Amino acid sequence: MAHIDYFFATISPYTYLCGVRPAEIANAHDATITYRPVDLMSVFSRTGGQPVPERHPSRQDYRLQDLHRRSVLLGLPLNVKPAHFPTNPAPSSYAIIAAQAAGGGRMAALVANLTAACWAQDRDIADDDVIRDCLQAADFDPKLADSGLLAGAEEYHRNTEEAVRLGVFGAPFFITDTDQRFWGEDRLDDLEAHLAGRV
């Protein structure tokens, strides 16, 4: 059975645009996924990337155009300048880590809910009430937002270190157990093709 490590950031618009498709692709090919939220700013600083405000204006302009096009093509609403961006991604990341450890809910929906809260609903995903709502909507106990914070922080750090070690430099980033790497929402078709044995 194939396995995918899914490295992502809850404040990444391209993670939002993935929706639940990574899980759908994995399910279609009997693959498993480990959801691994990372500190994207740390990944950027260690792999040559830059936060959005520090990028050249031409790169910033292109990003806005690309986000608009992708959202239209995917049929997903997107506010390219959300009310709560940037915000602290750690609390939502800890909740994802706690939910994955607890089991029993829908991980793909949780990631989709949290990223949609930021990029489509203008909600602050650093807010505990928002996190609880997203957990509950994905069939997890909303109290997970308040538990395992130390363990979540440690796992978040380990995910970030492992991401850098494995060659991750952005989000979303998918790495298979055969070390095939796919960066970006627009490479999900390539991931699917790989799992299907076409590439």
Rank of each mutant, 00 (worst) to 15 (best):
H68K: 13
M41D: 12
A116P: 04
Y94E: 10
V72A: 05
R69L: 10
H56I: 04
Y62A: 03
V199T: 10
Y6D: 06
A112S: 15
G197P: 06
S12F: 08
R36P: 02
L67M: 15
C134S: 13
A120I: 08
E162V: 04
L191Q: 08
D129M: 12
A108C: 01
R21W: 12
A83L: 14
I33P: 07
L195Q: 10
G104C: 13
T160P: 05
E161C: 03
A95I: 11
T32M: 01
P77F: 10
I11N: 06
F8D: 09
V43T: 03
L150R: 07
L166T: 10
D146K: 03
H29A: 10
Q100G: 10
T176I: 14
P91K: 06
Q60N: 11
Y156Q: 02
A31T: 04
V38E: 03
T10C: 07
C118I: 12
Q60K: 11
I25M: 07
S42W: 03
P91Q: 07
Q180P: 00
H84T: 10
R46Q: 14
E154T: 13
A145L: 11
P13N: 04
Q136A: 14
H29L: 03
F8C: 09
I4E: 12
E24S: 05
Q65E: 05
L73G: 02
L73T: 06
A145K: 09
A101G: 00
R55M: 13
G148N: 07
K81P: 00
D129V: 03
P13T: 12
R63P: 00
V20E: 15
K143S: 14
D124G: 09
N79P: 01
Q136W: 01
T47E: 05
A153E: 14
E54H: 04
A83E: 15
S42A: 11
Q50L: 15
V72W: 01
W119A: 00
D66Q: 09
Q50G: 00
R70L: 13
I4G: 06
M107W: 01
Q136S: 12
R70E: 07
S147M: 12
P53W: 03
A120H: 03
R198A: 08
T178H: 07
A2R: 14
A95H: 06
D122N: 15
R59T: 12
L149D: 01
G75V: 12
R59D: 13
T34H: 02
Q121T: 08
H29Q: 05
G49V: 09
V20W: 02
M1Y: 01
A31P: 08
I175R: 06
N27T: 04
S93P: 10
R70G: 00
